[in-house]
Each structure stands twice: as C-alpha cells, then as structure tokens.
Design a binder for these strands. Sequence first.
RNA 1: GGCCCAGUAGCUCAGUUGGAUAGAGCGCUUGCCUCCGGAGCAAGAAGUCGCAGGUUCGAAUCCUGCCUGGGUCACCA
Length: 554
Amino acid sequence: MREQIQKLLGQAVERAVCEIDPDWGKAMPAVQVTRSRSPEHGDFVSSVALALAKQLGTPARDLAGRIAGAILDSEGLIERTEIGGPGFINLFLSKLRWHDTLKAILEAGEGWGLSTTDRPERTQVEFVSANPTGPLTVAHARNAVLGDVLSRLLEAVGHPVTREYYFNNAGRQMRTLGESLRVRCEQELGREAELPEDAYTGAYLEEIARGLVAEHKQELLDAEPAFFRDAAEKAISALIETSLERLGIRFDVRYNERSLYDEGLVEETLETLRARDLVFEADGAQWFRATALGLERDRVLVRGSGEATYLLADIAYHREKFRRGFERIIDVVGADHFDQMPYVQAGTAALGHQAERIEAVIYQFVNLRQGGEVVKMSTRAASFVTLDELLDRVGPDVLRYFMIERRADTHFDFDLDLASERSERNPVYKIQYAHARMCSIERLALERGLALLPPERVPASRLELPEEIELVKKIGRYPEVVRRAAERREPQEVARYLLTVATAFHTYVTDGTRHRVLSDDPDLTQARLGLVRAIRATLGNGLRLLGMQAPERM
RNA sequence: GGCCCAGUAGCUCAGUUGGAUAGAGCGCUUGCCUCCGGAGCAAGAAGUCGCAGGUUCGAAUCCUGCCUGGGUCACCA
C-alpha cells in the first residue's frame, strides 16, 4: 500500500516540478512516504515538499499544495489531502480501502502475514552451537530463541531456511570432560580419585556416571579415555536436545566439528590459505597473516602443540557452508565472539567466497535479576541457572517473549520475579489473554446460533466508528511489520507490535457501552465479528510466529 | 588503551532509518464489575532525550569531542 502511494506521489512531484521549472535538470529526489503518527495527520505523510522547496525557490507550503493537486488517483485510493505544519502533505485514505483490508485478512486466515519475495535466498541460520560439556544455561536461551524466531521470520517472508547447530567435540575441552567423567565413575565404584584441576564439577556428570556404572560395572576401569569422552558427549547432547525441545526448537542439521578433521577439510583449508601466502610460522605456531587483509593483527591457526585453533576450524566450516550452496549465512553469536567474526570472514573471503553474505547477529548477555539482586550468568561459575530450571519456573512462552522483547544487541536484565508473575504486569499474559477473550466472544456467537460468514459476505462497510477503522489499520500493517522485522533481523518489533494490538483490542472491547460486538443489529454484529476474527488471526499468527501458544481459553 | 552496547518520566524500556505537541508498560492518584472473560479499561500527575559543539527548512535520531555504566579484547571454545 505504501508503495502505491509512493508511486502516485512520485508522479505528482514530477508534474509539479515541470510546471514550476521546465528546465529542471536534476534527478528527482526519492519520495519519502511514512505512516502518520497520529490520525489527525491522515494515514500517510510525505515531506518531499520540505526537501524540494529550497532548491526550487518555492515556499514549502505552496509547493506541497501544488504536488497534492497534481496527484492523479485513478483508483480512488485517497479520500483527501491536507497540507500540514511547515509543508507536510497528509494523505487520508478512503474507508473503502480499509473495508477491503479486513476482507483480505479474513481470506488469508492462517496465511495472513506470510509473504513471498522476488529474491529468495537459500539461508542458513546457525545458532545455539553450545558445546556438549554441560546442560544449557540462561546464557544460551537468548541465542536459542533469537535464532529460532529469526528463522521463522525469514521463512515467513519467503526464504528457505536451514537451522543448524555446530558443536565442537574435537578439542581439549572434550578430553577434559571425558577425564572428569572417568574420575566420577571411579568414585562411584568406590575408588579414590581426584578430579583434574580444570575439571567439570557439575552434578550432572555424577548422574551420568551413576548410569554408566549401573550398566558396565567394573569393566569401566579398563575403558579407554575416548569411551568416557564419547559417553559424556552422548549423554549431554541428549540433555541439550531435551531442553531445546521443551522450548519448541528443532534443528535441521547438527554439524560436528570433528567431521571437519575426519574429512580433511581443516587441513585443506590451511593448505589453501598457505598457497595464498597467508600463512607463516612463528614461535612454533602457524599464523594467519590477517594484517595483510587489513585486519588488526595476525592470529594463530595451528598451535605449537600441532592442534588447530577454533579459528581455523571455523574458517573451514564457513567454507563448507558456501560449498553446500547457502546464499545467506547468519550466525547468531554472543558478544564475546564479536572479535572473531572479521577473521572468519576474511579467511573465507581469501578462499574465494563472498564473505559479505556471512552475517553475524550479535547479542549481548543477559543478567538474571531476582529479588532486586542481579545474578551474573557465567558457564564457569559453579552455580548457574539452567535453561530447564528457568523453563520449570516460567514456561516456554514467557521465556521466549522476554528473550526477544528487546533488541539483541542491548544488555538486559531478565526479571525472574516479573516473568514468574501471572498478572497484568506481564505482557505475555496480556497478549494471550486478548486472544482467549476473542475466542470466547466467537464461542458465545456460536452458542447464540450466529453463522460464521465467509469473508466476502462480511458486511465490512458497517464498521464506521473511528476506533474500528483504527483497529483495521493497525492489523493491516502486520505483513509489513513481519517483513521489516525479517529484513532488519529484529524480532522484537513483532513482539512489541503484538502488545499494541492486544492493548487496542482490550480498549475496544472493554468499552461495551459504545460498541457491543454481539448486538441486536445482525449486519453490524457480523461486521464486528469479522473484525474480531481478523484481530484474532493477526494476534494468533503473530504469536505462532514467535513460537508461542495462542490459547483459546486461559 | 582499542573495539562493541547503552545513557529518554520514579523504575524497565520504545521511538517506524531526519519530521509536526516526546511514547508505552510498571509504580503513584482517581474512577469503571446488573457488562461479549476485571489476567481488562479510562483519566491524571510525571521529561534539560548524559554534557558541549556541529551539519539543515527541521536532530532523541546524523557527525565530532567529552562524561558515566556494562561488555569484550587467548597458541579458550
């Protein structure tokens, strides 16, 4: 809709300018059209006249008037125009337009808000990617929800998405983990054994040890280190899988770092970089000559011990992403990985790939707040709150909403007390309650024997109250909100939008004196039922887009 | 010290890529249950948009400098 307006205005500007100055040789400026902030300024507003006034030497208000007069609106889109303030052109769309919008929403139903794109990109979203060394914590929750909602958003606007989890099971960490498990098993069998210094001390390992002892008994004492490492990896991966399932998250691909080594891809990457003269030796290590590519410093690819660094494996991994045919690569990573990304990009670019197609969605860490106290999260801290504990307390819907309610790249405190509340203060309930309330109205309508009309027969023109038109306008924006949120990778825009829709509905329906939905007037009742259904479709689709329940009762 | 994020109402935060009189939620004050779900709604009080310059028709938004808070800077992953 905005595009149509923009086109109409663009043509009007050309005509107006030609009239004032036929010799105008310069390019026409891009016509800015935005939604008006307040209804008194119409539906759309443009500031072209302000931008052009000085160049043309015409007072802005005059110019605005001439442009407005030059609009050729053959489709009857615009009801009227007004010139406001210093020279804004305010455009008022005709009500007919909004009645059509309502029908379009009802027709689209569950597909309302979904769209397609001329340029679909095979997209990979890599997220969570936690190593299987312990259960998921709050730290991973933001990553998980962000990645999942981003994936859903991209799919909603027409991109095919692969959700991928990359985990490291090749390095020292995993050896340490295996060693820690072995010690726990020995202790379980009654032996004296000390945990190594950098061991994993979590209780979950003791539990896994008990399971192993029950199964294998004394034979464990003869097992190889790799046995414990693999057993730990398997058990912990299962824990992680279960937590993610509770959050409603599934992956298409689980990519394992060790396979990069097994298939010789790490070695191949190193050799290719070497052939490009980007590798040199110093202090017994192999270095990536990143400074030659304009980066701040050089970095180690192969340690003195002969082991590859995470960076080298990551470059190899990203090369594989391109080889697998992805056109858009999105990595959801914590702020602590921020410095790493340019090196991965530079390395991948050096291998001949379009590294600008690699995008990092960076999120800042979350603090837990409880009873006014801020609990800093850290995987290393002895006491961390696991994702499961959090889910036990607040459930998946609240967790999801809170995690994407704010921009990814800002810090925020997760207020456990607020999140646990089932009250008016909690926006999740407010949104879901609105949905349940609408379902309730529809149930009542059915009880009273009212038929649900097909969209084209809904007498939408009976909706005349300003607040009703405002509601239609608001939900009519939904597809645009989704598109924008997807393009900008900012799911919080959808979350906040849903809250405003829910509030607008509550306002409408609570004032039962002016407008009962179910009244004595059959046509008006059907029109308002149509409105309620359209709002419910918007809210329901939006909730599902965020991976949340849209309850029919609460 | 370099880089990243933030500084807007008492609190938590929005602010549609530079637009008109600055916006929500919570909290506070005052109302609304003979009512389609009160898990809701209405009204009110509340602001030096961190500070100082600059850019232009116009700045919370862009640029520069400074102040304050958080994060991050491995031959860890």
